[in-house]
Amino acid sequence: MGKTWLIIGSFRGLGPAIAEAVLEAGNDLVATVRRTVHAVFAGRANVVNGPLQYG
């Protein structure tokens, strides 16, 4: 069973590199970005645009 990772700030810097490694290892990924989804997620993720819903 794989792990589920949460990466906050996955648009630039170390975020995309870590996200890519997580996906390549076959793990699940929950990632947040403030801008359009980075190419590392293209075709490999369910994307939800908009603010997080609480409650």
Rank of each mutant, 00 (worst) to 15 (best):
V40N: 01
L14G: 09
V37I: 12
L29P: 10
D28T: 10
A31R: 04
L6V: 12
V30F: 14
V22E: 02
N46Y: 05
R44K: 15
A17K: 12
A17C: 01
G43V: 04
T32C: 05
E24K: 15
N46L: 11
R44N: 06
A21M: 09
S10C: 15
P16G: 00
W5R: 00
W5F: 15
G15H: 02
K3L: 10
D28G: 05
L29A: 07
V47G: 01
F11S: 13
T32S: 14
L14P: 03
A42K: 14
R12I: 10
A31E: 06
L23A: 04
G43A: 07
F11E: 14
K3D: 08
N27Q: 04
V30W: 13
G15Y: 01
A21C: 04
I7W: 05
P16N: 00
T36W: 06
G50Y: 10
Y54A: 10
A31M: 08
G43Y: 08
G26W: 05
D28C: 05
L23T: 05
V30G: 02
G15N: 02
G9D: 01
G26P: 06
W5N: 00
I7H: 05
N46T: 13
E20Y: 03
F41G: 02
A21V: 04
A39Q: 11
N49Y: 15
V22T: 08
T4V: 09
V47P: 03
I18Y: 09
G50C: 09
F11N: 14
A45R: 07
G9H: 02
I7T: 05
I8L: 13
G13V: 00
D28E: 13
A31I: 08
T32L: 11
V37A: 14
A25H: 07
F11K: 14
G50E: 09
A31C: 07
G50P: 09
W5Q: 00
V22H: 02
G43K: 08
G2P: 15
S10E: 11
E20Q: 15
A21L: 11
S10W: 04
S10F: 03
N49E: 15
A21E: 14
G43S: 06
A17I: 11
W5V: 08
L23R: 06
G9Y: 03
V47S: 01
V30H: 07
F41N: 03
A39G: 06
N27G: 00
N46H: 14
D28S: 13
T36Y: 06
V22G: 02
D28L: 07
G2V: 09
G26F: 05
A42N: 12
K3P: 00
K3W: 04
L14A: 11
R34K: 12
I18S: 02
N49R: 15
A42R: 14
N46K: 14
A31P: 08
G55V: 12
W5A: 07
L52F: 14
V47A: 01
E24I: 03
A31Y: 06
I7G: 03
T32I: 08
P51S: 13
A19D: 11
T36E: 15
P16K: 00
G43L: 07
H38K: 09
N49G: 10
L29V: 10
R35D: 12
Q53N: 12
G26V: 02
T32Q: 07
